[in-house]
Design a protein around this nucleic acid. Structure first.
Length: 446
DNA sequence: TACATACAC
DNA sequence: AATGGTGTATGTA
């Protein structure tokens, strides 16, 4: 009956598209029972949207890129002595192995569902209930929500489809920052040089602490985690290893070559920091799913060093990473930005409306930079079309730029060009190399 | 330098 | 109806 209304033979979603739509953090906290059913629901909810079309386009582009790479691989392997290449790669591996340093005790600490657990402390009524933190897109999901497949980075309306009783809690960043400060202070007792990575995780070198207090690493970390719990009521997971490649959750990796090797053998390559969704697919295409697979395909990787980065992957295979922990310089702010969102408008007739919006953004940025004393040397105009395609247009100067709205607008007009006539739904203006205005004010433009 | 892409959190 | 913000690194031209 109504079937004629549907488009004939809608092409089925490819596995890669379904996975892409499910978002980047599917492999992270896989507490859900049936991920494929969850992915199906997400793909279904996305279907027909501009967002979906854009993801489909990107997926297709990646597939084409993969096909190109496979062809390159086949060409590269023609008429070369594979065993010779393997031999030379083995030599590189031996070199790397000979420099392995097992002397440092590195701990990766990660607060469990940080935002969600802070909210739980604040509002105990949420206990046992599925909830997400954030509006629009979720910053995190409680453990009870994760059971349904709800994850960080997921739009609220899709999360609601997966879990209709989901509660949405507004984000309270100052609350998390406060708790983060407390937790980090505890970590610093064990390593004053620790590296804070975001507000809920970090890396520590506890070698010296263990020595001075005559503690073995596991007892030391146990004690540290107990302090965190006692002083903040929050829980923290930790991985202990001879370097910074984090295992997962709460884990002690024995400090010998064989244990590390067998740990890496079946570890999915996606779990390595720096291997995201794209590299996962590229590597999968040439047969690499786990860190162990790197060795099997070392000849191909060696021939295609430029595409894949041989050294990077060989180090991953061996489980060798940096074991230097530094606090990370407290840098100056680099970017000041403002944005405006808009939805419904038409193309040509609303040129003036777009210009008005642009002016709005410029005014907002002027306000922010004047108030906080920032300026910069590059103006970046970033805009998203209603197709979700993102464009950036930038102009750099050799002097500090005036933060006056009209000066900003002048630069933006110069950058804007023909997209003025298109459907735009998001505009950013960004100052790059933002510097404190007080220091820069003397050399700013007219 | 300009721009795009990939990634992390 | 509806799919993030901020920052870094890197490749390419």
């Amino acid at each position: 009956m109504g079937q004629e209304l549907n488009p004939p033979n809608p092409s089925p979603d490819t596995a890669s598209l379904v996975k892409r739509l499910a978002g980047p953090s599917t492999t992270k906290a896989g507490l859900a029972k049936d991920q494929s059913e969850i992915n199906r629901i997400i793909a279904e909810a996305s279907k027909g949207s501009k967002f979906y079309d854009n993801e489909k386009r990107k997926d297709k582009e990646l597939t084409e890129r993969i096909n190109k790479i496979l062809k390159q691989r086949d060409d590269a392997r023609q008429g070369v002595d594979i065993s010779q290449i393997e031999k030379s790669t083995d030599h590189t591996l031996d070199q790397l192995e000979s420099h392995r340093d097992l002397s440092q005790v590195i701990v990766h600490v990660d607060m469990d569902a940080f935002y969600a657990n802070v909210e739980l402390l604040h509002n105990p009524e949420l206990k046992g209930k599925p909830f997400g933190v954030g509006a629009g897109v979720l910053s995190t999901a409680s453990y009870d929500a994760r059971k349904y497949g709800v994850r960080s980075g997921m739009p609220g309306f899709i999360a609601k489809k997966l879990c209709p009783e989901l509660i949405l809690v507004n984000i309270n960043f100052t609350r998390y920052q406060e708790m983060s400060d407390k937790v980090m202070d505890i970590f610093r007792r064990y390593d004053p040089n620790m590296l804070a990575a975001g507000c809920d995780e970090g890396y520590l070198n506890i070698t010296a602490y263990c020595e001075e207090h005559n503690l073995d690493p596991q007892a030391c970390v146990q004690e540290m985690r107990a302090f965190v719990h006692k002083e903040t009521n929050l829980t923290v997971s930790a991985g202990i290893a001879p370097n910074k490649n984090k295992p997962n959750g709460q884990f002690y990796l024995p400090f010998d070559r064989e244990s590390i090797k067998s740990f890496m053998q079946d570890l999915p390559i996606r779990r390595i920091p720096g291997v995201g969704r794209v590299n996962e697919r590229l590597l999968d295409a040439i047969g690499i799913k786990t860190c162990g697979d790197i060795y099997t395909h070392r000849a191909t990787l060696s021939l295609m060093d430029k595409q894949f980065g041989l050294q990077f992957l060989l180090r991953i295979h061996l489980g060798i990473a940096s074991n230097v922990v530094e606090p990370g310089k407290r840098e100056e702010r680099k970017i000041a930005s403002a944005k405006v969102h808009f939805r419904t408008f038409s193309t040509l007739s609303d040129r003036q409306q777009i210009l008005n919006k642009l002016e709005e953004v410029a005014a907002e940025l002027e306000d922010d930079t004047e108030r906080n004393g920032w300026t910069g040397k590059t103006v970046t105009l970033k805009y998203k079309l209603n197709t979700y395609q993102v464009y950036t247009r930038a102009k750099s100067f050799d002097r500090w730029i005036s933060t006056k709205k009209d000066d900003l607008l002048a630069v933006c007009h110069h950058l804007w060009q023909y997209h003025l006539l298109l459907l735009v739904f998001l505009i950013f203006i960004i100052y790059r190399s933002a510097r404190n205005f007080c220091q820069a004010i003397l050399c700013q433009l007219g």
